[in-house]
Simulated assay, not measured.
Amino acid sequence: MAKRNNNNNDLNEVVKQLADVAQQLAERNNNNNPNPAGELFKKIAQSKPPTYQGEPDSTVLGNWSREFDKLFVAVACPNESKVSSVAYYLRGEADLWRQQNEQAERALPNFGWNVFKEQVRDKFYPIFLQKHKADEFLELNMGTMSVTEYYIKFIELSRFAEDTVATDRQKARRFEKGLPLSLQRKLSGQVFDNLDELYGRAAYLHVLELKEKAEKAELEAREKRKEPMTSSGPFGNQNNFKKQKFNNHQSNNFQNNRNNQGGRNFPKENRNHPGDRNQRIYYCKRCSNNH
């Protein structure tokens, strides 16, 4: 019996020592981090997050909320501290709206960062504007844009039509529908379940298409520079030009032969006489002799 009491006493002593160690560690941690909220705010401020002033612009609002989504993950921000951290980066009309509705917001069930984002969007980007963007997405096509510009616009507007393109395969089909017919024909027979895969293939084909057009235009320009004279030229068409050139050559040869004879006329004895009617004389155009 005495032995069992001794064992109990030893166990109690060990538990007490462990409790003392845990208390010491907690005190040391508190001394190293006297203000956890202040340290969190400092980490957020070092990243220089964007401010929001209540602009009715989907791009500005979307970029603002996404930046804080990434920042909260990077600094391991607790859920209960997210809204209070974001509130500091509201300006202008957005800041006034926050101050007027802060108490009512906190009374909402499950209030947190996700609920707060929805409230900001409903306030500064109302439903009718969201519907306008959804209609713009449904009518979107590449037109004169590059494939990259079309892809960026597609991603931006697709957020307003999530019911229409709920899956990645639906996004790929809708993206292909907005491409020019020339690219659609080159992509025919291929099924893409991934939007990014389709985008990469379409961008590659578009580069080849632009290259072919540039080479064709350069070839046509070269052919145009080498084009012979037409009927509007000084010698008429090409056949007339060759004929005129040949006649000029013959005339020049004949004149040169006459000059070689010293400019004299053919000798009189070589001319025809009245009594020599049956005799035919031929004057050579090259040497002026009768042969």
Results as ranks from 00 to 15, higher is better:
R4V: 02
N6M: 09
N12E: 13
V14F: 09
V15T: 11
K16F: 12
Q17L: 14
L18A: 14
A19H: 07
D20E: 15
D20R: 08
D20S: 12
A22V: 13
A22F: 10
Q23D: 15
N30V: 10
N33D: 05
N33T: 12
P36I: 02
P36K: 02
G38P: 00
L40A: 05
L40N: 04
K42Q: 13
K42Y: 13
K42V: 05
S47E: 15
K48G: 02
P56N: 08
D57L: 07
D57I: 05
T59A: 10
G62I: 04
N63W: 03
R66M: 08
R66E: 10
E67W: 09
L71N: 01
V73W: 06
A76H: 10
C77Y: 05
E80S: 09
S81W: 04
S81H: 09
S81G: 02
S81C: 07
V83N: 02
V83H: 01
S84G: 06
S85V: 00
S85M: 01
V86K: 00
A87Q: 02
Y88P: 01
L90K: 04
R91M: 07
R91K: 15
G92P: 00
W97F: 13
E105V: 06
E105Q: 13
L108K: 15
P109F: 11
P109E: 14
P109A: 11
N110R: 08
G112W: 06
N114D: 15
V115H: 13
V115D: 08
E118S: 08
Q119E: 05
V120E: 01
D122A: 14
F124R: 01
P126S: 07
F128R: 11
L129F: 07
Q130F: 02
K131N: 13
H132K: 14
A134H: 04
D135Q: 08
N141M: 08
T144Q: 14
T144Y: 08
T144H: 11
V147W: 01
E149P: 00
Y150P: 00
Y151D: 00
Y151F: 15
I152F: 11
K153G: 03
F154Q: 00
E156R: 15
S158Q: 03
A161E: 01
E162M: 12
T164F: 10
A166K: 15
T167F: 07
D168A: 01
D168T: 03
D168G: 01
R169S: 07
K171T: 03
R173P: 01
G178D: 03
P180Y: 03
S182Q: 11
L183M: 08
Q184G: 07
K186R: 14
L187I: 06
V191W: 06
Y199V: 00
G200I: 04
A203P: 04
L208A: 11
L210Y: 05
L210E: 15
E212G: 09
A214M: 12
E215K: 07
K216F: 09
E220T: 05
K226N: 11
E227H: 09
P228H: 02
S232I: 04
K243P: 00
N247W: 10
Q250I: 15
S251I: 11
N252I: 10
N253E: 07
R264K: 14
N265R: 15
F266Y: 06
F266R: 04
P267L: 13
E269F: 09
R271C: 05
P274H: 14
G275E: 13
D276W: 09
R280G: 05
I281T: 12
R286K: 13
C287P: 00
S288D: 02
S288V: 01
N289C: 09
